[in-house]
Design a protein around this nucleic acid. Sequence first.
DNA 1: TACTGATCATTC
DNA 2: GAATGATCAGTA
Length: 224
Amino acid sequence: MPRMPPPGTELELLERARRLAGKTLQQLAGNMALPVPTGQKYAKGWIGELMERCLGASAATLPVPDFREIQVELKTLPINRLGKPRESTYVCTVPLNRESFTTWENSVVRKKLARVLWVPVEAAPDIPLARRRIGNAFIWSPDADEERLLRTDWQELMEMISLGELDCLNACFGEALQIRPKAAHAGARTPVSNAAGESASTLPRGFYLRPAFTYCVLQRYGRI
DNA sequence: TACTGATCATTC
DNA sequence: GAATGATCAGTA
């Protein structure tokens, strides 16, 4: 499987990403000698994996930043014809064990979002996967307002979990950050410690950034 | 049309 | 089974 070596610096990563701007997924896959999937229902995550290979991400499947050498996380962002994100952005799984409860400063969400390479990708439903183009990538860190928003949401959501209110926690909570199921199917279960400290099991959840938040990031930093 | 809850592929 | 990468699809 072809894969670029990891970038040594942020600048090198950014230059690599910028060279991909305007290219189609077909062109990129062709360079890497990979087939473009047919049928988008079965291609979830393919664009992300393609970009990892093209840019030299090194930490696939590990709960650490994609570019571990320079501590940068890679996120592709599907953009519709209006330049708005078409989907929410998955951040990480939600810790449900008391042992993993921590402060915002030490949270995985904050670590993952501290430094992100956003790669906008054209994603109108009527454009076939092969013809979708890569946009102008940029490296982002939350500014004071964004960080405050994320911290407030994170603290509210984690407080509900630590109070044992997981059952009434749905995707409606959180202004920028929300919690939604993150599982192979609705029957999946993961261990959870409840309010009484007893162990139980529940559907695995993930933290996601709402499209409205990533849209603001796009407007502050980027353009397609 | 946007949003929530559900789901799909791959890898370890 | 659980982590990664996400998008699908029903419905409000």
